[in-house]
């Protein structure tokens, strides 16, 4: 099956397979055992939050999902299909959007070019004609509209974070991976980012896997997984997120 055949537009009839299903994933950096038997499921249209203190393997897990790191132990099923053997660019074209920790804006491309690069994830579905940025992006992040010709590397941290999310959205992903989108961002922009993510889910119906330390944002999710020492140690609906769990797993 080619990658393009596996990809459908975001609004589709709900299929039976969950968007993302990880089972028995183990990952090693050399000798050290970073991820231990991780099982995790993200259902369609669901927003799942991954919590845990620094260094427990949250970012490593996301990198395994997008394909920057890969492990032979365990299965990562995306849209009902194992993607362990896929390279990162193929996973992106299959519909996984990635907003990394540290934002990773390409510094010497303009903001507009950074956004247009996001279209690459569409693969053959990319518009052949003049490439334009959809109005939704500017509705979500109005600040970007005024700085399209600025270099990506010259933006402030908060602006880069918004650009990073917008760039991932350009590829119309079905599953969005967000790695600490509010880390080191000033409080007013944190709220903007939270609202934008909520609107993205409402308007496009995509699934989101969020790594977050910010309690207010964590509560927006439908479901949570808590990690400790590379393994999942607790999970449940965020409605029942007790103070004990918060105390134990969030660095607040």
């Amino acid at each position: 099956m080619t990658t393009t055949a596996a990809v459908q537009p975001t609004k589709q009839a709900p299929a039976t397979a969950p968007m993302l299903k990880i089972s028995g994933l183990n990952f090693y950096y050399g000798e050290s055992h970073i991820l231990r038997d991780v099982d995790l499921t993200v259902s369609r249209g669901q927003m799942v939050c991954l919590i845990g203190r620094n260094g427990v393997g949250k970012t490593t897990l996301l990198k395994n999902i997008i394909g920057l790191l890969s492990s032979r132990e365990g299965v990562i099923n995306y849209d009902g299909q194992p993607i362990n053997a896929f390279t990162a660019d193929r996973r992106a074209r299959a519909g996984i959007g990635y907003v990394p920790q540290g934002r990773e804006i390409i510094p010497r491309l303009s903001v507009k070019e950074n956004l247009l690069i996001g279209l690459e994830a569409l693969g053959n579905r990319a518009p052949k004609a003049k490439k334009e940025i959809p109005e939704l992006i500017f509705e979500l992040f109005p600040v970007l509209k005024t700085m399209l010709s600025r270099m990506g590397g010259d933006l402030s941290g908060g602006q880069q974070q918004q650009l990073s999310i917008a760039r991932a959205l350009m590829g119309q992903p079905q599953l969005l991976l967000l790695d600490e989108p509010t880390e080191g961002i000033q409080p007013s922009i944190i709220l903007d980012i939270e609202n934008a993510v909520r609107r993205i889910i409402e308007t496009t119906g995509i699934s989101v896997l969020l790594v977050e330390q910010h309690l207010h944002f964590v509560r927006q999710a439908d479901y949570y997984y808590a990690m400790q020492k590379g393994g999942i140690v607790a999970s449940g609906s965020t409605d029942q997120l007790s103070n004990d769990v918060i105390q134990e797993f969030l660095a607040v």
Binding site: I66, L68, D89, A92, I106, E113, I117, E120
Partner: peptide, 21 residues
């Protein structure tokens, strides 16, 4: 050209965006 400039500046992120590096 845009792909080339993206990949030469940040290979990993370019791959994560779907560019066949």
């Amino acid at each position: 050209g845009l792909r080339i400039r993206a990949v030469t500046q940040n290979r990993d992120m370019s791959a994560c965006l779907g560019i066949p590096t």
